[in-house]
Simulated assay, not measured.
Amino acid sequence: MKTGRIIMIVGNGDVPAGAGAMIDAADVVIRFNDCRSVGASGTKTDIVAVCNTGRPALSMLGGSWKSNSAVRQAWEIWSVRSGGKFANMRAELAKTYPDLGDFCDDYTTDFESFAQATGRRHRVIAAAVHEQVDRDLARFGPAPYAVPSSGMIVIADVLSSFATRDDDVVLAGFDHFGWELHPFAAERQFVDVLAAEGRLRRLLCRS
Rank of each mutant, 00 (worst) to 15 (best):
T118P: 04
S113A: 15
V154A: 04
F162W: 01
P98Q: 10
G151T: 08
T108Y: 05
C104P: 09
Q132D: 15
F114A: 00
D110F: 03
P142E: 07
I125Y: 03
D166P: 06
L159Y: 08
C104A: 12
L137I: 11
A163V: 13
D106I: 12
G101L: 08
T109I: 07
F140A: 10
R135A: 15
Y145M: 10
I153E: 01
D105A: 09
A117Q: 14
D106P: 08
R123M: 14
D110E: 14
D99K: 13
V158C: 02
S161N: 12
A115D: 07
A156P: 08
I125M: 00
G151N: 06
E131L: 15
S161E: 13
D110G: 07
H122R: 05
A138N: 11
R123F: 04
H130L: 12
P98L: 13
T118W: 02
H122S: 05
G141K: 01
H130D: 15
H130P: 04
Q116V: 12
A163C: 10
D136G: 06
A138T: 14
V133E: 03
S113D: 14
P144F: 11
L100T: 05
G141M: 05
A117Y: 03
P148I: 11
V154E: 03
D110R: 07
D167W: 05
D134N: 15
P142F: 07
A143G: 04
P148A: 09
V129H: 05
C104R: 01
R139H: 12
A156E: 13
V147D: 04
F162C: 00
G141D: 13
G151E: 06
